[in-house]
Amino acid sequence: MSTSRKPRRRFRRSLGERIAERALALVAASAIGAITLILVFVVREALPLFWDGHEGLALAAPHRYPNYDHPVYVWQPVGYPPKYGVVPLFVGTLKITGLAMAISTPLSLLAAIYVAELMRPRRRAWIKPIIELVAGVPSVVLGFIALTYIAGATQDLLGCTYRLNALVAAIALSLAVLPVIFTVAEDALHGVPLALREASLALGARRYQTVTRVVLPAALPGILAALVLGFGRAIGETMIVLMASGNAAVLDPSPTSSARTLTATIAAELGESPRGSEHWRVLFLLGMILLLITWALDAVGRIVVRRLARRLDPSTDEGA
């Protein structure tokens, strides 16, 4: 017994090594800590809404306020009585995000196809970084661009009643989302093995047939991941919509009417609401909802992407 114990001891890792590993693991746990703290401290400010006697808030349901003849969805937190109908904010968020995705998805995917499939490698090597650079432009700069250039141009072109509206915000937003979708989708397309393209071409397929029937389906998981990422970025974007959307919380599906998003509402109103007030708590609740939306988006996106990847290649294993 004692003879077998000694050598094992001698080969044991030093104390310093073991302490280092533990310490690093502890630091790594801080990422988990951060996301937990974010959830806890946003929820902590929001949840008292539901037990501190804030009856009749009518967050999601239409409500008949005094002087109204029928129930309405209204967001008017400084009115009397304050009205916290969040439906117009959701409509505004979906309208702007949907428009931005409708603009940026076809443009970025087609551009990615051109760069990945039809462009010479050398040219690709400098075109891609240019578009990636745009991904780093601060959103406040894009908001400013919307305000100074895009708003005027769309008004001249379409004759919108309001200078700032959902479409203006959506165009600026697509400038933010486009490079994200482009980069990830281009990587996915470029990552499709050359052997598959060669197999297709050797069977007498045209370029476009190879792209639509082999390359795009094979890259679909990555392309979908790109779209989910872009959608998440669009829904969470604050400064652009705050500066360019006009910020009126109206229930109007028209793209050229004004709109107010969840993010812009928080940014614009939290500064003016007293801590712990009903308004303050509702704003934190909006933040909590945003958090849950992005969370759900991440989860759904991962499940769909994984399923698709497995359908393409059933031999891929679960974990990766």
Binding site: P193, A195, L196, E198, A199, S200, A202, L203, V214, P217, A218, L312, D313
Partner: peptide, 12 residues
């Protein structure tokens, strides 16, 4: 027609 060194079936 052509058959390649490494088999390259489509993911279909």
């Amino acid at each position: 027609g052509m058959v390649f060194q490494r088999s390259n079936p489509f993911p279909k």
